[in-house]
Simulated assay, not measured.
Amino acid sequence: MPPSPRGDERASRTPLLEIVVPARNEERRLPGGLLQLCAKLAQMPFPTAVIVVDNNSTDTTADIIRNWPQGEVPVRLVQCATPGKGAAVRAGLLVTKAPLVGFCDADMATDLDAITVAVGLLLGGERVVIGSRAHAFSEVENRHSRVRELGAVGFRALARRLVRGVSDTQCGFKFFDGRLAREVAARLRTPGFAFDVELLARCAAAGAPAMEIPIQWRDMPGSRFSPARHSAGIVLELGRILLRLHAESRGVIRPAWEHAPDPVGSP
């Protein structure tokens, strides 16, 4: 079905909100997730857009976006050659232009009604709004193994050294003042799973601590995180984040973004 005249007019306007979706080999989950996301965004009373970042997929993820029917909510593809979710989110945030931006996972594990809450808070003056599975009023359907749960406890203990006052740094549902997000994304140097910690720590250092909101969250099958394969790497990433931020605060090293190239995106 071709887009309606209203959809054409809305899609041609500059979006107030852009949402980044990082994707690596998501040909199975991405179509359903995008349908949900676009349906939610089409209900918003202002123009919106979606940016899907293909992170070196070897399946048809990129083709799905290239062939996605354009309607009220434009969906564009950006390529990120650097492996890692952090690198993909960074690449997506850097090509945004909207006053408000955010990112969410391709599985849409967080109920998308939380977008309305997050946007309302941003329009009311908050600069960083994140979903928290640890919030007292969150509803969480969790099927994680005991090993993964114990690993999460250890991760949170380390993350609190970098991001004080945040109970859940890793929920893949975060929204920002657009200018702040682009400035902080340019400074990110953590490509892997721990990138959220660096992102939130840099926001807090810029005077924009995160506000956590309750969410409805379902543990979706197909997670790429494995405690056995990734735990050691995450601990190393957290250590590097701590050392770099400490060195930057003391002026021992120049901020990495002063001499590092930005990722190249494709329309």
Rank of each mutant, 00 (worst) to 15 (best):
A42L: 08
A88M: 07
L162I: 04
P255I: 09
F46M: 12
H259M: 10
A106F: 03
D54S: 05
A201I: 00
G92D: 06
S12V: 06
L94C: 09
D8R: 13
R240I: 14
S57Q: 10
L34S: 03
A204N: 05
L158H: 03
R244T: 14
A201N: 00
L41W: 09
L122D: 06
P2K: 13
D196W: 01
L245C: 03
A134I: 01
A256H: 11
I213D: 00
I19D: 04
F175T: 02
A247K: 05
Q70C: 10
E183Q: 15
R127N: 08
T61Q: 06
A98Q: 08
R240Y: 04
P5T: 02
F193P: 02
R189G: 12
T190M: 05
L236V: 12
T61S: 12
R143V: 15
P69R: 09
V78H: 06
A39G: 11
S223D: 14
C80N: 14
L123Q: 13
S167T: 15
L123T: 12
V20H: 02
D111K: 02
E26I: 02
G120P: 02
A204T: 15
E258D: 10
V128R: 00
P255S: 10
A62L: 04
G207H: 04
A210I: 08
E237R: 03
A118I: 04
T190W: 01
L41S: 04
E72Y: 12
S145I: 07
L17I: 04
N67I: 07
C171L: 15
L238R: 03
P209L: 04
L245W: 01
L37H: 04
A205E: 03
N55D: 13
S57R: 09
